[in-house]
Design a protein around this nucleic acid. Structure first.
Length: 1042
RNA sequence: CGAAACGUAGCUCAGUCUGGGUAGAGCACCGCUCUGAUACAGCGGGGGUCGAUGGUUCAAGUCCAUCCGUUUCGACCA
């Protein structure tokens, strides 16, 4: 016996996976293993991975975890392949969410309040609050065993990063790809900010609201031939936009009725006349005209605040394809400053734009009657005013779904704001071309979701009217009489013109850079920065170069390492980060930004709903980490088709299943090995030269699993890789180890035992390497315990060529497994338990003799004395005809059904040349297959390969019966040993109290019983309170260690 | 409203592109078996009108059409 001190491996306990993980994380931290995994790889063999920055001011959730696991698994694999993979964490610091959070904290809300509070104070508050959750992120990311560099992170609010961002803007400006335009956006006057479409779609943001719906009359400028005063009736639910009315829109193909009423002629859509029964009481239809006939007529402004603005080219009847007659009058009043369609129609017809509404949603002084009033509150006054003018036809209340600001709960309005654009439409085709150079996983995204998005790309609005962001680096003359625009792309350029070098590019400091306009001879006008800041998506799209402060630093490195090898995010980033990276890459460098990209799917809760904090329909990540561990969760995700772009539900049961199906089997293979290696005090060697067929089998299997896993990983198919590993794990545990068990039991260290140890060890070590990217902590624990090395993640990925190929052996072994399955099924059918030995099993089929070298495995598994092989299949089996429809269909047409029918009936015969006569046709060998089925009266079963049968001799002789009984008793002893908590090496003195048959059976096989049960002696006598002995008596024993 | 993806066993999903004959796997359930690894595993069973309807075809889970349902997207969500 060995003692603990000479045990070569640490004893293996029942695993507590979360505890093991925590220990491994601490060890990595102390040893700096992550840094070593980078430092020890050659500089010239770099693999570039971009870590997309999350919003810094939110907590990590399951979606981030999922992406994080992929972000970790691929770099770990590449590191093992010898690549140097830097992994810098990034923080997306700017943007509206950050400002919102700060407003909430400070209790300061809205543009005015922020300005009063001080932009400097506000932005400083943003700066501190935005990093509030970084420690939470670091904790979670570390706990999930993601290796990321937090020390050397990048932040979009760093001055270096921001300088690269303005550099990019300047580049685009110089290429003529930047322009400024008014753009109608959803606008919250409560928050004094434009909102995204995304925000107005938030839960509950859009809900029913009652608004006035008014029909008002616009008097047309008289034309020759008019029957009299003509008025066009327009319907609107936003009376407050009437002061800004600049046009009326008709559908060119629609019919419009001219209704005579009290000497006036009212025009409205013919289909809508019925809606105005009351208002048109007594009216007579004078005529019907087409919309196209009304085009370009002019009218008197209803509310004449802009009546003398000839430059607006306004107050005309215009054409719009969206005009409908289901509601309203078929005539749409348009105010280009306050609606997206309105803006488009205005632009198409050369109509200008007025926006007499300020940031607080109040009318400006231009609207003299209502100046200072909130536009929605002004609605009723405007209606009264129109009524007084005699132009109000109808006033109703209208309930519709209306968007609200999700933060202030005020109704939003649509309003034009100046905005800076990237002219994506100018280089859209090139973006489509460059997309073809990217390897997308799944591949349908390339020309599907992403490709289609690119084809329909619109110009990209990149500015926001906010405070906390990189500044749009445009300085403009404050006197339009002396126009001048300067754009700056670096601190140097700013310093050259303004005489100071900014040490902070944020507002308000950047706004303090002001200088006289060089183009103004009077010296009065000044160059001032425009107020906008960048949309944070422009900043995250700049990440590849901005994180290294390109081109101000790292110029050569960036140019040699762009595009990136790999990125991963969830599928909806086709509109987000994937897109902004691609646009900026195309515009700035005429290259794609990344070569390989995984778009994983969307994570849903177990109930199929989206993950929702409100519904609490998922288990918190921390709870999963504590109970099941991160590796189980990681494998669960990596083995799911969510990493192939599909959606997936997260289920606690699914994660438990990973523990049972993957983690525990891995652990038990390890535990098995160390248990017996420690008993023998044997330290195993890495060797692949064993000649034992089981060893050669598992080594050859290992070779093919290395090939398959490597191939899957190289094509970024993580689910495929994990599936390969699972299949191998089954062969390792449930065939190799199970079949090899007795090789580890002998008391002596034989050559065979040594082979078994070394092979199992070699296979385990390499298996752990293959699994390391997917189970980084559990494999680390096992690998380091077995090898004493520092880390599996510092090891090299296995090479398939280092392991012997033996396809023939693998094939035969797999065939043995099917023979065994078939034989066990026969036993079951016959009710013959496996412990009862049978005399003979015959494998009948051509070339069945190839299994002869492995026959002892069959004999042992099936418990038969002899395994025979026969080439004479016909002696044991009949054949069933399976016509090949794919070939016969085209030849026979409808008659193919007759052939199938006849085959089913068995109405066919085989000719000497092997062809088949059936239903009047002759089938050539490629037109059918013959399936084996056991002959009548033979206990036999066909193999799935359909070319052989397994025949079992079911004659049970008294000798066999006795031997079976002896084995039953051995089994009972083993069971009792387990119950009494004996160590597997404990020797016993056994006492049996059996029936005559039982005693006879044991007598006949005493040596066998002793060997199997580690009994040093067997006594026969009375046993009180013993264990059941296979139903033929009782047994007891005492430990008799020598 | 528009677009896309999906819909196959109680659950998670293969198979559908390229049509071929009793529709598969894993899990769960039931029974049996094995166990000198306290893990498991092996064998068997029940469980499916392949979302619905119609069409094309000798033949449809697979191709076409329509419909229904779920999810996502419709320019600030991993």
């Amino acid at each position: 016996m060995s003692t603990a001190s000479d045990q070569p491996y640490p004893a293996v306990d029942k695993p507590d996976f979360p505890a093991i993980e925590t220990r491994i994380l601490a060890r990595w931290d102390e040893a700096g293993t992550f840094q070593r995994s980078i430092d020890e790889r050659p500089e010239e063999n770099e693999y570039v991975f971009y870590d997309g920055p999350p919003f810094a001011n939110g907590l990590p959730h399951h979606g981030h975890l999922l992406t994080g696991y992929v972000k970790d698994a691929v770099p770990r694999y590449q590191t093992m392949r010898g690549k140097k993979v830097d992994r810098r964490f990034g923080w997306d610091c700017h943007g509206l969410p950050a400002e919102m959070e700060t407003e909430k904290q400070l209790g300061v809300s809205g543009r005015v309040a922020i300005t009063e509070y001080g932009i400097d104070n506000f932005n400083e508050a943003c700066r501190t609050s935005v990093m509030k959750y970084t420690s939470e992120w670091e904790k979670t990311v570390t706990r999930q065993a993601r290796w990321v560099d937090f020390e050397n992170d990048y932040k979009t609010m760093d001055i270096d990063y921001m300088e690269s961002v303005i550099w990019a803007f300047k580049q685009l400006w110089d290429k003529g790809l930047i322009y400024e335009a008014n753009r109608v956006m959803p606008y919250s006057w409560g928050a004094e900010t434009p909102l995204s479409n995304f925000e107005i779609r938030l839960d509950d943001a859009t809900r029913p609201r009652q608004d006035p719906a008014v029909t008002v009359a616009f008097e047309l400028t008289p034309n020759e031939g008019d029957p009299g005063v003509m008025k066009m009736l327009a319907w609107t639910t936003t009376p407050w936009t009437l002061p800004s009315n600049l046009g009326l829109i008709v559908g060119p193909d629609l019919d419009y009725s001219v209704m005579e009423l009290n000497g006036e002629y009212l025009i409205l859509g013919s289909a809508t006349v019925a809606n105005y029964e009351k208002e048109l009481e007594g009216a007579v239809e004078h005529s019907v005209v087409k919309g196209v006939d009304l085009l370009e007529r002019t009218y008197t402004p209803l509310l004449p605040y802009f009546a003398d603005r000839d430059d607006l080219n306004a107050f005309r009847v215009l054409s719009g394809d969206f005009v409908e007659t289901e509601e309203g009058t078929g005539i749409v009043h348009t105010a280009p400053g306050f609606g997206e369609d309105d803006q488009r129609i205005g632009e198409e017809n050369g109509v200008g734009m007025v926006v007499p509404v300020n940031d607080q949603g109040r009318f400006t002084d231009e609207v003299t009657d209502f100046a200072g009033q909130n536009v929605l509150e002004a609605n009723s006054d405007i209606i009264k005013h129109v009524k007084a003018l005699g132009q109000l036809i109808k006033h109703e209340t209208y309930e519709h779904n209306y968007p609200h600001c999700w933060r202030t709960d005020t109704p939003i309005i649509y309003r034009a704001l100046p905005s800076w654009y990237v002219k994506v439409t100018d280089f859209r085709e090139r973006l489509v071309e460059l997309n073809q150079e990217i390897n997308w996983i799944p591949d349908n995204v390339q020309n599907g979701r992403f490709g289609k998005w690119l084809e329909g790309a619109r110009d990209w609005s990149i500015s926001r009217n906010r405070f906390w962001g990189s500044p749009i680096p445009v300085w403009r003359s404050d006197n339009p009489e002396y126009p001048r625009i300067d754009v700056y792309g670096s601190l140097d350029e700013l310093e050259a013109d303004f005489g100071v070098r900014p040490d902070n590019l944020h507002r308000p400091y950047i706004d303090e850079l002001v200088r006289p306009n060089p183009d103004d001879p009077t010296g009065q006008s000044m160059m001032r920065r425009v107020p906008e800041v960048f949309d944070c998506w422009f900043e995250s799209g700049s990440m590849p170069f901005a994180q290294v402060h390109y081109p101000f630093e790292n110029k050569d490195w960036f140019e040699e390492h762009y595009p990136a090898d790999f990125i991963v995010e969830y599928i909806n980033q086709t509109r987000g980060w994937f897109y902004t990276l691609h646009v900026l890459a195309g515009a700035l460098f005429d290259k794609p930004s990344f070569q390989n990209v995984i778009c994983h799917g969307i994570l849903l809760a177990e109930d199929g709903q989206k993950l929702s904090k409100k519904l609490r329909n998922y288990t918190e990540p921390t709870e999963i980490f504590d109970k099941q561990g991160s590796d189980a969760l990681r494998w669960y995700f990596m083995n799911s088709n969510i990493v192939r772009g599909g959606d997936a539900r997260i289920s606690d049961r699914g994660i438990d299943e990973v523990t049972r199906q993957v983690m525990l089997p891995v652990w038990n293979a390890y535990s098995f090995f160390t248990l017996y290696a420690n008993i023998d005090g044997y330290r195993a060697q890495l060797r692949t030269d064993s000649t034992d067929e089981l060893d050669r089998y598992i080594l050859a299997k290992l070779r093919s699993v290395i090939e398959a896993t490597t191939e899957a990983m190289d094509s970024y198919d993580l689910a495929g890789a994990t599936a390969q590993i699972t299949t191998f794990l089954d062969a390792l545990n449930n065939w190799f180890i199970r079949r090899s068990r007795d090789r580890f039991w002998g008391p002596e260290m034989t050559e065979d035992k040594q082979n078994a140890f070394d092979t199992l060890y070699t296979v385990l070590i390499n298996f752990l390497k293959l699994s390391a990217p997917f189970l980084p902590m559990i494999t680390e624990e096992i690998y380091t315990s077995l090898t004493g090395e520092e880390s599996v993640h510092l090891a090299a990925w296995p090479e398939a060529d280092d392991f012997p190929a033996d396809p023939e052996l693998v094939e035969n072994m797999d065939r043995v497994r099917t023979v065994v399955s078939a034989a066990l099924r026969l036993r079951e059918d016959q009710g013959l338990r496996v412990r009862l030995p049978l005399q003979t099993l015959t494998v009948a089929g051509s070339d069945s003799g190839a299994l002869d070298p492995l026959s002892h495995l069959i004999a042992d598994e099936v418990n038969v004395k002899n395994v025979a092989f026969s080439e004479d299949l016909g002696a044991f089996a009949e054949f069933a005809l399976q016509p090949n429809g794919k070939v016969l269909g085209p030849r026979l047409g409808g008659d193919v059904q007759k052939v199938f029918g006849a085959a089913k009936q068995g109405a066919w015969s085989q000719n000497d040349d092997g062809s088949i006569e059936i239903a009047g046709y002759t089938l050539t060998p490629e037109e059918f297959t013959l399936n084996v089925k056991p002959a009548e009266g033979v206990t036999a079963a066909a193999l799935p390969s359909n070319d052989a049968v397994v025949v079992l001799d079911i004659d049970v002789t008294p000798e066999l019966e006795a031997e079976g009984l002896a084995r039953d008793i051995v089994r009972a002893v083993q069971e009792a040993r387990k119950t009494e908590d004996l160590v597997v090496t404990d020797r016993i003195a056994l006492t049996l109290d059996l029936t005559e048959a039982g005693a006879a059976a044991v007598h006949a096989m005493e040596a066998y019983v002793c060997e199997q049960t580690l009994a040093t002696s067997i006594g026969y006598g009375t046993v009180d309170n013993g264990h059941d002995a296979a139903g033929v008596g009782t047994l007891s024993f005492t430990v008799a260690n020598s």
